[in-house]
Nucleic acid binder design. Structure first.
Lengths: 160, 160
DNA sequence: GAACTAATGTTATAACATATCAATACTGAA
DNA sequence: TTCAGTATTGATATGTTATAACATTAGTTC
């Protein structure tokens, strides 16, 4: 289990690396990384935080890539389905996947102060939730695990 | 860990029992279960499924208890803060607490077909998520755990 | 180049949620 | 019992998130 998110790093390299991986996966899986989709993924990667659909739309609109909500939602849906981004339910927002390519059940650590998000891998079907589901006869298809709180940086004074 | 939700039961008794507990807790904790709040809790208990704020508002409005969104949201906020109800992030909806009174971190099993919701208790701080958070230096304040899939009843033919 | 599928453009509206300020009701103390 | 303080409700407006529906364009295959 690796958690990716709060440590500092060479962000420019991290973005371009992720874009390269995404392109490779699209080529391999016959998915089309069109200009809008590509740009939305870049925006998510660069910001490294959860962005709302209308934040995204603001950027797109400023860049002449589209002005109406469906433009943003379609691109985000594509990225989420392709596994390039995740939706954060507790924020109604979206974030680039930190484990690009790997099929996984992510868990998120969401800072309520700076909105940064760390992504951690889990195996819920092996945990308590999985046991509870089996006991109840429930068939899990998708799991949302989101912890809210304070990231390391925001614990030192600047939080609410 | 107990999961409450999909088994059949004497629902009328379950509702009145929960209302009694809620009343007792309000009396003990100096909380006011006003007519609107009381009615909203009843609606959630009776339906036994996740209801949207505007579903609630529809009932209230039909009963002359209020017509504007804040009426529903205030009542729901009260119930959530008091621990009498939970918000389901993945549905933008609300459900009565199945463990009325106990302080807990609930996990939900949500049927995508019939929208019924089972509530299970967990201890996330002792699980993988807790480990990941400690490793990352993240201070968890609140955890959302929601599994989506098919309940036992909806697995037999009538699902999508 | 016709037929098919995927993606985009466009309009409209649905669904969810909160800010703000005024009015009223309840509570406890002088 | 009236005053001050606090909690609740009433009311209006608006902000935010998301999708339905249908027309058009682009890309792919035969």
């Amino acid at each position: 289990m690796t958690t990716i998110g709060f440590e500092t790093h060479d962000h420019r390299a991290c973005v371009s690396e992720a874009m390269t991986k995404a392109e490779a996966r699209c080529a391999a899986s016959d998915l089309r990384l069109t200009p809008v989709r590509r740009r939305v993924l870049e925006l998510l990667l660069v910001d490294h935080r959860a962005l709302g659909a209308y934040d995204i739309l603001g950027h797109l609109s400023a860049e002449g890539l589209g002005t109406q909500p469906p433009v943003a939602y379609r691109a985000l849906d594509f990225l989420v389905k392709a596994g390039f981004a995740h939706r954060i339910e507790a924020l109604n927002a979206y974030i680039a996947c930190a484990h690009l390519g790997a099929d996984h059940t992510p868990a998120f650590l969401i800072c309520r102060n700076c909105r940064s998000v760390a992504e951690s891998d889990t195996a819920p079907s092996q945990g308590r939730l999985g046991v509870a589901a089996r006991d109840a006869g429930f068939q899990i298809e998708h799991t949302v695990i989101e912890a809210q709180g304070l990231c390391p940086a925001c614990q030192t004074g600047n939080a609410a």
